[in-house]
Amino acid sequence: MTGLLDAAFVLLILTTLVLLGSSRIRLGIRVLAVQGVVVGAAALLLPNHHVTLRVVVIVLIGTILDAVVFPILLLRALRTARVERETDPPVGYTASILIGVGLLTACLWGMKYGGITLPHEGANPLELPVAAYTVLAGLFLIVARNNALNQILGYLMLENGIFLAGLSTAMEVPLLIEMGILLDVFIMVMVMGVALFHISRTFDSIEVGGMTALTDWPDQEDVGK
């Protein structure tokens, strides 16, 4: 069991590193789908809780959303936006991988010396650091990319991390709250898809960096078009 769980964590970390280091958005969407499955598997393997029907249902719904529904929605958004890759992100891809490794080290170090203890007996020492790392890596991806689709990917990664952190810190998994979060994420992706469609129809690209030049002043019309 522990070996499988460790393998799932390493796979999770590797998927985050691929997302940090790849410029191809299509690949990123697929890797994120894999990450959804891995997070689901890790959630079931966590030694914190007994595998009850309730946990299985939550994990199953979350995994289906992550691995099937979101990729379909995002790939559709990719087609309407007609982009394949982000060429000039604010933080480069090689630097992003290094920062990812740094974040992971910081999370492991913080967990070891920060005096944080999980309420469970025999909890895996990796579960909280890896969850925190996934959250931070998702946040970093949102900050370090200009392309709106990449930012959505970062947001979904963040959500995966929160899901894992919730499962590893809470003694019980409250069904209603989990359902609420999943619904929120689902609606967010829909809304972001619509917003993306509007951005790509109004402007030539979905690079959000150019939007800082938008203005209401009448004498500067056509800025950003």
């Binding site: 970390i13 590193l17 280091g21 991988i97 290094l98 990812g100 490794v101 080290t105 990796l126």
Partner: peptide
Amino acid sequence: QLLVGATALAALAFVL
């Protein structure tokens, strides 16, 4: 990028 990826894997093996 490939080589930094390799370093990242080795670092991962070390810290995990």
